[in-house]
Design a protein around this nucleic acid. Structure first.
Lengths: 161, 161
DNA sequence: GCTAACAACGATATGTTATATCAATTTTTA
DNA sequence: TAAAAATTGATATAACATATCGTTGTTAGC
């Protein structure tokens, strides 16, 4: 699906929620959609500088990312301290209570996967037996993507992790 | 099990691995064992200052934590940027290929749990179908512990998350 | 349209987490 | 005991993040 369509869908979702996807917020979301990999707030600010899209200071990026996260448009990957656009903006978007992210530690490529509901159910059951209550379930799994794995095989000066 | 015994076991494990659990390393591990909650490197440095156990600058703590992690004696919780002592130092210690941590976002209390093998197996299968390869499997699950959950109910000025 | 209330944005300061580097010291090995 | 290796000390700097306050822009009621 094209980025422009996703942005339009995002805008509609915000209107439904009574929030506003301002032009700056839209541009940060677009930046995340164009870069497929996860980006830090400072990465995003740098991208705006380099692509001469007008200034976007890191503090603004943080504020905007917070808004986008609250509006279910981006996910924060806590293990990487980076952010990705939600891959379900344009599809149903509400089926996904538990997100699972495979994150390449080398290039920050991210895949948002959907693990078997049965598995997630079992997980919840395991946790119910403890004295902990799960909140905002999100799994982040450290991986190496195929591309970077290949790189490792053929280039000796590439460092893993 | 008493901390002293765990430390002795840790020392033996290091000797078996051909590494040395020096007195400073031992003291950092002991610090993590005494505090049941996860601590940041700077938290540990502060603890040494307060308890007048002699200086332990943050940079030393980082170096020592790296050693302890390499020697499977502590885990880094990437989502919290904090560290905990491995809860399996004194038991078999090698059965645990995939560690799962329940982390209280309020007080950093941590429980290292063993989730249903079925769940872990399914998770691995899901990942095999992607173009990612899992490394250093470790799951961190954001939770609220019962104690902090109770606190929330009875005190109005306590903030959740 | 005017104004009050609120939301969004800009700017600065500061806090927290982490890595890099090089010198000094201690321990091990030959 | 001297050389080599491991450990520790010390400083600088990078990377990630929050707090605060003033300004600008938008919305809602009059």
């Amino acid at each position: 699906m094209k980025i422009q369509q996703i942005l339009e869908r995002a805008e509609r979702l915000c209107i439904e929620r009574g929030t506003r996807l301002t032009s700056k917020r839209k541009r940060v979301l677009e930046c995340l959609l164009r870069h497929k990999n996860a980006l830090s707030a400072y990465n995003i600010a740098d991208a705006f500088k380099q692509e001469a899209e007008g200034d976007m200071p890191p503090m603004s990026v943080y504020r905007i990312l917070e808004f986008l996260e609250d509006n279910l448009l981006v996910h924060k990957l806590h293990t990487a301290n980076k952010y990705v656009a939600c891959s379900h903006i344009s599809c149903d978007h509400r089926h996904y209570k538990t997100s699972q992210f495979l994150i390449c530690l080398k290039c920050s490529k991210v895949e948002e996967v959907s693990i078997n509901n049965l598995v997630i159910g079992e997980l919840h059951k395991s946790i119910e037996r403890t004295e902990f209550r799960m909140i905002s379930p999100q799994f982040e799994i450290n991986c190496i993507c195929n591309t970077c794995d290949q790189d490792k095989k053929y280039s000796s000066n590439t460092q893993l992790i």
